[in-house]
Design a protein around this nucleic acid. Structure first.
Lengths: 154, 154
DNA sequence: TAGGTATATAGAATATTATTCCACTATTTA
DNA sequence: TAAATAGTGGAATAATATTCTATATACCTA
């Protein structure tokens, strides 16, 4: 479904979505027509999901990243659906993964400071279907990337 | 440094970087000139770091997300610098945070399958300055967002 | 109060880019 | 061989970004 040109195109667009069709074509040694068509096809097919601006969290007053581990003792479909929907609607939770193992969920939370994170935890604690297990504060980000590798292996 | 209009502008651009100046101006009930200037200013100031395409990891053959916890028993500046630089150069590691606590590091890794993740772990195991502590496999993503909240509190 | 600064409106001109077409070519496949 | 697929090269048009100018407004300060 995706050939080598597609994958290299995705690599470029993941690094910089502002590259023009012309620049992309040059870097891939092709003309603009097929590049344009490939991009549109991948947008249509959902390979490219969206284009976004990445901003500096510190500069908008969110310097704190905390990983919050949560378990769900009563693991029912209703509890799962309700908890996950609640999480999706919390803007401070940037990422949330359902994990295999005893922890069940890991939430990546951004906060202004510890005090605000404490408030966040209180919100979580109100949810009856989960138990907050532990929080791990990030000292700093070693790496923060949105670039999914497109070449096989590494 | 950032006023309310800036923050609302950032909220829009974080959702969809393809919005035109005109559309942004309309949504903020302003004219195009100040919107254009505000964006350029925030790009210059590093508030907006970059524009990227977000792609569907599954559709490029990376359906697996694993969180890998690593500790560094001999916590020296040299070991820290070397390990972190190694991590930055591993394309399968999308995110890496230095955590407060016993775990030290958490890596978010994307992989094609468990077999490839095993190979990744073997690569990590070669690094003499760290000890791989545990891996947590993500069953699925409840939420995946790059949108840092720009309004105070939540 | 008067002047200066910063930021907005409104409109226009130009440059750049995206988007859509078309004719033609090369390669692969049925 | 004929049809289908994907590319080249070029061109036309529409949409956008970018740069400017003139003017208005609010706010701060001397």
């Amino acid at each position: 479904m995706l050939d080598d040109v597609d994958l290299r195109l995705l690599a470029l667009l993941q690094q910089n979505a502002k590259l023009t069709i012309k620049e992309l074509a040059e870097q891939l040694s092709m003309t603009t027509t097929p590049i344009f068509e490939r991009i549109k096809r991948m947008e249509r097919d959902g390979v490219i999901e969206r284009y976004v601006a990445l901003i500096n969290a510190e500069k908008v007053g969110r310097p704190l990243v905390v990983f919050c581990n949560v378990s769900m003792p009563d693991y029912t479909p209703e509890n799962i659906a309700e908890f996950e929907e609640t999480i999706r609607q919390m803007p401070d939770v940037l990422d949330a993964y359902h994990l295999a193992g005893t922890i069940d969920y890991q939430l990546k939370v951004v906060a202004c400071d510890i005090k605000q994170y404490a408030q966040f935890l209180q919100q979580l604690a109100k949810l009856p279907m989960i138990r907050v297990h532990s929080s791990a504060i990030a000292l700093y980000a070693v790496k923060q990337s949105t670039v999914v590798p497109t070449t096989l292996k590494s």
